[in-house]
Design a protein around this nucleic acid. Sequence first.
DNA 1: TCATACATGGGACTCATTCTCAAATATTGG
DNA 2: CCAATATTTGAGAATGAGTCCCATGTATGA
Lengths: 130, 130
Amino acid sequence: MSTNRRETKQRVAVSAALDQVNEFVSAQQLHSILRDTSDGVGLATVYRTLQQLAEDGEVDVVKTADNESMYRRCSRGHHHHLLCRSCRRTVEVESPSIEKWAQKVASANGFAEVDHVVEITGICADCQAR
Amino acid sequence: MSTNRRETKQRVAVSAALDQVNEFVSAQQLHSILRDTSDGVGLATVYRTLQQLAEDGEVDVVKTADNESMYRRCSRGHHHHLLCRSCRRTVEVESPSIEKWAQKVASANGFAEVDHVVEITGICADCQAR
DNA sequence: TCATACATGGGACTCATTCTCAAATATTGG
DNA sequence: CCAATATTTGAGAATGAGTCCCATGTATGA
Ligand SMILES: [Zn+2]
Ligand SMILES: [Zn+2]
Ligand SMILES: [Zn+2]
Ligand SMILES: [Zn+2]
């Protein structure tokens, strides 16, 4: 809700850690990454910070098949993801036609406050080559 | 993987209960619905049965925002859903162009074994009028 | 009817995520 | 710089969906 966030070393640490990975990572992974380096950050704080970053549109969130939230610093603006189920390599994809389609289907059926989830998964070329 | 399922009264009960609702329901909801009628069905069995029905393509599964799996008996064949976040009213939608788009984006990036998740949510006309 | 492979369910267990709240700390007005 | 104050932190407890274990029950086919 609020946009007034204090700059604590924990928040900086989480943000910095996110910058070091290019794929989606879970709160737990980030927590153990931070455990090793310098002063660790509490798990609760990692969760809170990631949620806030997501609220602020700083990171994107996707859910794995086994219900784990994964976070990634993405480019700003609405987009979707094509991601490798094996190595989590991520490709951001944009498609105005998909957005229009979703909106059209919804309003054609009388729905308002439309939202949508569109994610494509697969096995990337590298992972296919094993 | 197997398709050899025995016809037990529990399985019949779960399947019948599913037929009585037209929206997506969770395993827990189905369990408490069944608790009231006749002989209840164990929670573990409800989960198992729903999973099997999903495997067999008898029901569709969607995840709520708070990571709960919801099941619904849908028409056969691949399709997606437009669903009301308030009352869970569901509209099945088909769109060959979306399917082609997903496949094209994936192969253009060297991905194989492509899968995708496409769900549209909103507030239905009735819930807006509420 | 019998043998037996498969199904059931109560309860313990997992595990991501949230909650609690006292102690730590960033911010700010003076 | 300093004290007052509003936030933030984090260790551990709590939550809750879903899974597992396994002794008991049963659908099914010979
Ligand atoms: Zn890969
Ligand atoms: Zn979109
Ligand atoms: Zn509705
Ligand atoms: Zn599709």
